[in-house]
């Protein structure tokens, strides 16, 4: 008897009310007592999920805000130094400001995907990268202009505006593709691209030949390229 009470407390009330022991009543009673439990449990679960979501969203919002402020602070306070980094690559100060502005926009977009703990070195590196890109592109475009003037039908694939937001979806896919690579290939590519090392330096660090490093870098980029080509492109 004692065991029965413990196993099924709701049954206890049925035993103490023998006059109401008809099947229909028992069923109703069972449902009503369980419905209460059921409702209470669901309520608790909903409240718990809701709180977790709220706490997470709140935490994230605070993080994002802190990061935005930190980023803005770097771009305001370190602007002269960042312009210097760009100007050094570009060979003049004319476009340096523009490159820094471009870096700000791209980094704001990109860092919604990553956490950066060393923002100053990251920002400086991105500014330098973008200055190199700018340098190449302006030389490339002026060469195409010269061609066009010669009557050649060389239209540039895209006359992208100088300051352009990145394709965040593409960036996320690139990150994913790099993570799919064998560890050593991924590491070699990271040292080369983000670590700003030469192939020879990467080879020394990893204890492999420069030729292998060259292949690993190509593999990494080709893998990303193929994955980007495979994605469904939004209609333009």
């Amino acid at each position: 008897m004692h065991l029965a009470y413990e196993r099924c407390p709701c049954y206890m009330s049925l035993l103490t009310e023998p006059t109401k022991n008809q099947p229909a009543y028992r069923y109703k009673k069972w449902i009503s007592s369980h419905r209460l439990t059921y409702l209470m449990v669901t309520q608790i679960i909903i409240v718990a999920i809701y709180s977790v979501v709220l706490i997470k969203a709140g935490g994230r919002a605070v993080d994002t805000q802190t990061w935005s402020a930190e980023l803005e602070d770097i771009f305001v306070n370190q602007r002269p130094r960042l312009c210097c980094v760009a100007a050094k690559v570009l060979g003049n100060a004319d476009q340096a400001d523009d490159v820094v502005q471009d870096a700000y926009l791209k980094i704001s977009e990109a860092t919604t995907l990553f956490e950066v703990k060393q923002p100053i070195s990251y920002v400086s590196r991105v500014v330098r990268n973008l200055a190199i890109d700018r340098c190449r592109r302006s030389a490339f475009e002026s060469a195409l202009f010269a061609k066009a003037e010669e009557g050649d039908n060389a239209s540039c694939a895209s006359h992208s505006p100088e300051v352009i937001a990145i394709d965040r979806q593409a960036l996320a896919q690139v990150v994913e593709s790099l993570n799919e690579l064998p560890e050593r290939t991924r590491r070699a590519f990271e040292l080369y691209r983000s670590g700003n090392h030469t192939q020879r330096e990467v080879a020394l660090q990893l204890g492999v030949s420069t030729t292998s490093v060259n292949f690993m870098i190509r593999d990494a980029l080709t893998h990303c390229h193929q994955s980007l080509q495979g994605r469904s492109l939004p209609d333009k």
Partner: peptide, 20 residues
């Protein structure tokens, strides 16, 4: 153009040192 776009994107990924 595709190669340089991809190159630019990979340049935005923080290195291990920058992430830690």
């Amino acid at each position: 153009h595709e190669a340089e776009q991809l190159w630019m994107l990979t340049g935005l990924i923080p290195s291990g040192d920058e992430r830690n």
